[in-house]
Design a protein around this nucleic acid. Structure first.
Lengths: 192, 192
DNA sequence: GTCTATAATTCGATAGAC
DNA sequence: GTCTATCGAATTATAGAC
């Protein structure tokens, strides 16, 4: 078991607090109190409250975009690509639920130019998903649907997976979670 | 066309601002500026900033719970009940996108005892959906699945429909939106 | 790295005149 | 209903001693 550095503990505990009270609702005093020191000491770890938000968000968005770019550039079929995208979201929800929560809850508190970049990147991500779905429809792997609405609904069900982990008291089996989500997205709830 | 009262304009404009900047990120001065008067005048319309949040949230949660209780008490089949639940979410997303956004983004800023009540009500809502799905599986209308994960994923895709309306520049046809969402949830994206 | 002290600003809210 | 003036508290952040 690796020993956590003070810096790692700082970022982990801050993350949990922000998850409970929101970025704007979490004060540097709150963070300091949780770590049992006085407020000005947070500046031993960060330059500003804003930079704290930015570091959490940039880390996780880079990971998502790196993953989907690799998927796009692969020779897998559209159906397999969608499976890989789902797998990535499940994996992230299981491994970094609080960071995902922060991303979804508090991205709006980014300041320019970071905010504009984030919004653009988010659109770009959805466009890549749309592109995969379009290919899949063309190849007859998917039903013909309104791709914008579908991509949006699909991503919505993926983006909020972290709540299952963050909210649920019970343990979740990641493999079972992925299977259930894949089945839902490909087959829906209907009998046939 | 009904003429809007000043009070209606106040609540509408406040809602849009909160949607952009979040509840904690929106100051009473921001609201006053948008309405072209000075900050203390907001107290002509509300008792406190907190009561503003509470009124938005209680209105919309009552509507959802009233709807699902009527559905539960009806003699429709589970499949038809799920269709009605989806229809309600689509209808709300189309008619009250900003209020739904506030609900999802800022419910955590409720204070006790309202916060606890909201969390309980949210769990209760999901339990009702789970109950419908369980009935449907028993009757052979739905595939046998992990109902908790399914209900969660299903509700996630419904709860974020408002973003299609709030974000999208293009007009959305509510009837088409409902059809696409129903098809996605019952059949998924797969060909068969 | 930790603290005390405090600056500079902003916030929700109130008082009271018109 | 609208304003000016302002209070009291809280916030991010800095200065500087230990």
């Amino acid at each position: 078991m690796k020993v956590k550095t003070k810096k790692e503990v700082f970022f982990e505990e801050s993350l949990k607090l922000i998850n409970e009270k929101g970025f704007k609702g979490t004060t540097l005093r709150d963070i300091a109190q949780k770590l049992n020191f006085e407020a000005p000491n947070v500046y031993n770890y960060i330059d500003s409250k804003q930079s704290l938000l930015e570091s959490y968000i940039s880390e996780i968005t880079k990971e998502f975009h790196g993953a989907i770019d690799n998927v796009m550039a692969s020779s897998y079929s559209p159906e397999e690509k969608i499976r890989l995208v789902i797998a990535k979201h499940v994996q992230m929800a299981v491994n970094k639920p609080y960071q995902l929560a922060l991303l979804e809850n508090d991205w709006r508190h980014l300041k320019e130019p970071g905010l504009g970049k984030y919004i653009d990147a988010r659109k770009s991500y959805m466009n890549k998903v749309i592109s995969i779905i379009e290919d899949g429809i063309e190849l007859g792997e998917f039903r013909a649907v309104n791709v914008e609405i579908l991509a949006f609904t699909l991503l919505s069900s993926l983006r909020w997976l972290f709540r299952i982990i963050a909210d649920e008291e019970s343990e979740i089996n990641p493999i079972e979670l992925e299977k259930q989500v894949v089945d839902f997205i490909f087959m829906g709830i209907g009998k046939e």
